[in-house]
Amino acid sequence: MAHRYYQRFFASTSKASQPAKVVATAFRVPVTAKKDKAASQVDAAMKANNLVGSVAVIRAGKLTYLASRGQSKYPSGAKNTSATRYQIGSAQDLITAASVMRLKQAGKLSLSDKLSKYYPKVTNAKHITISQLLNMTSGLSTYATAPKTNSFPTLLTWNENNAVSTSTGSCDYQAINYVLLAGIIQKVSGQPYREFIQAQLIDKLDLKQTGFVLDDAQRNKLATSYEDSYSGGKVAVTGMAKLQSTKLGPYQMYMSAKDLATSYLYILSGKMISKSNLDKLIGHTQSKFSGGVYPEDGDILVHGQLGGYQDSIQINPDKKNGVILLTNYVPTGIKNTDTAPIIYNKVFK
C-alpha cells in the first residue's frame, strides 16, 4: 500500500516501472524500556470505572505504557490488545486542522480566506473564514438528514446545499465545519482528502494500524462498538455505515491507541507544522474549541464518539504528558469527557 501511494504522490514524474524509493519515517514515538511508574494506577482506574478499550500513557514525550481491557468482540470474541483498531471519531479533527495549517505553511491558503473562495454556494460564505471553520465559530449547521453514502463528493455537495447559517462568533460544534475543511484540503492540494492524509501522515509515520473505513469488510476488522441495552446488557451498535456517512471524509479514520499517540505527538511537537503555526492553531486560550481540541488550563482535551466508539484524550503540550483512550464500549453514566481525565488525574496530578 505504501509503495503504491509513494508512486502516486512522490514519483509522478518518473516511470512507474522504476523502483520506488523508500519513504523515510518522519517520526517514531519514543518508547521507554521500563513500564510507567503509574501503570498500576492506570489499571486500577480502568477497572474501577469499568473502562473498556486501549489506553496509551505519554510521559515527557515518550510512550511509557500501553494497556487494554475488555473485548473487541462480545461476548465470546477476542480481547482488546495494543494492536486493536477503533474508529477515532472527532479525534481526527486535529489531524484535519493540522493538514489545513500545513497547506497554510506552504503558502497555499490563508486562515483569513473566505469560505466563498472555495464554496460560494454556502449561505453567508462571504463572511466566514477558514479560521472560523477551524474553531467552530462559523455559525454553520445542518438540520436536514444527510444521505447514506460512501461518496465524499456527494456529501460535500449535500453540505454545501443544506448549510444553515446563524450569527458567527460563538462556538458551536457542528460537523459541517470539518467536512468543508476536508473539502478545502482537496481543492488546495489537488488530492482527495484521504490520499492527502495517507501521504502526509500515515505513510510518513509508517502507521500500521491506521486507515480509513470505507465499507463493511473494513469495518469488521475493527473492534465492534457496543452500547448498553435497556436491560443493562451490551448490544452491538447497528447502522455504523449511516452514522459514518454523515461525516464522511474527516470522520472515517481508524487507529490503534499507539498510532493515535504517535500522530498527536508528531503534530504537537511541531514536526508536521512549525511551532508558531501550531500555536496559531491551538494556542487560543480564550477559545472553547481551537483547531480540533479544547484548550483548558494548559492542557488540551479531545472527546468524541461515533456510535459506540469513543475517544478521550488529555495532553499537556508543554510537558508532553498525556493519556489517550480509545474504546468500543463506555458504560452508562461514564462520559467521554471524563474517561481520559480519570486516568490522567491518577497519573499526573
Rank of each mutant, 00 (worst) to 15 (best):
residue 44 A to M: 08
residue 49 N to Q: 05
residue 50 N to T: 04
residue 29 V to F: 14
residue 38 A to T: 14
residue 63 L to A: 00
residue 55 V to D: 06
residue 48 A to M: 11
residue 68 S to Q: 04
residue 67 A to R: 14
residue 36 D to N: 10
residue 52 V to S: 13
residue 29 V to Y: 05
residue 71 Q to P: 00
residue 35 K to P: 06
residue 80 N to Q: 04
residue 78 A to Q: 10
residue 44 A to W: 11
residue 60 A to G: 11
residue 27 F to L: 03
residue 41 Q to I: 07
residue 32 T to N: 15
residue 70 G to P: 05
residue 48 A to F: 02
residue 32 T to E: 15
residue 42 V to S: 02
residue 66 L to I: 00
residue 59 R to I: 09
residue 52 V to T: 15
residue 35 K to A: 15
residue 52 V to C: 07
residue 80 N to V: 09
residue 39 A to I: 02
residue 80 N to K: 02
residue 77 G to S: 04
residue 76 S to W: 14
residue 37 K to Y: 13
residue 49 N to S: 03
residue 59 R to V: 09
residue 54 S to V: 07
residue 38 A to Y: 12
residue 78 A to L: 12
residue 74 Y to I: 05
residue 62 K to C: 04
residue 68 S to E: 02
residue 83 A to C: 00
residue 64 T to L: 04
residue 39 A to T: 06
residue 64 T to C: 11
residue 79 K to T: 06
residue 70 G to Q: 00
residue 78 A to P: 08
residue 48 A to P: 04
residue 46 M to T: 01
residue 43 D to H: 11
residue 69 R to M: 01
residue 66 L to N: 01
residue 51 L to A: 03
residue 79 K to F: 06
residue 50 N to H: 14
residue 28 R to F: 08
residue 75 P to H: 01
residue 83 A to Q: 03
residue 56 A to K: 03
residue 36 D to H: 15
residue 43 D to Q: 14
residue 83 A to Y: 01
residue 44 A to I: 07
residue 29 V to A: 03
residue 54 S to I: 08
residue 37 K to S: 13
residue 81 T to R: 01
residue 66 L to D: 00
residue 62 K to T: 06
residue 39 A to V: 11
residue 44 A to P: 11
residue 58 I to D: 05
residue 60 A to W: 02
residue 56 A to S: 13
residue 32 T to P: 14
residue 53 G to D: 11
residue 28 R to Q: 10
residue 64 T to A: 05
residue 51 L to S: 05
residue 50 N to G: 06
residue 36 D to L: 08
residue 75 P to E: 04
residue 80 N to I: 05
residue 35 K to L: 14
residue 34 K to A: 15
residue 37 K to R: 11
residue 31 V to T: 11
residue 44 A to T: 12
residue 56 A to W: 08
residue 29 V to L: 08
residue 62 K to M: 03
residue 48 A to V: 06
residue 36 D to Y: 10
residue 79 K to G: 03
residue 68 S to C: 01
residue 70 G to H: 02
residue 38 A to G: 09
residue 78 A to I: 06
residue 44 A to Y: 05
residue 36 D to A: 13
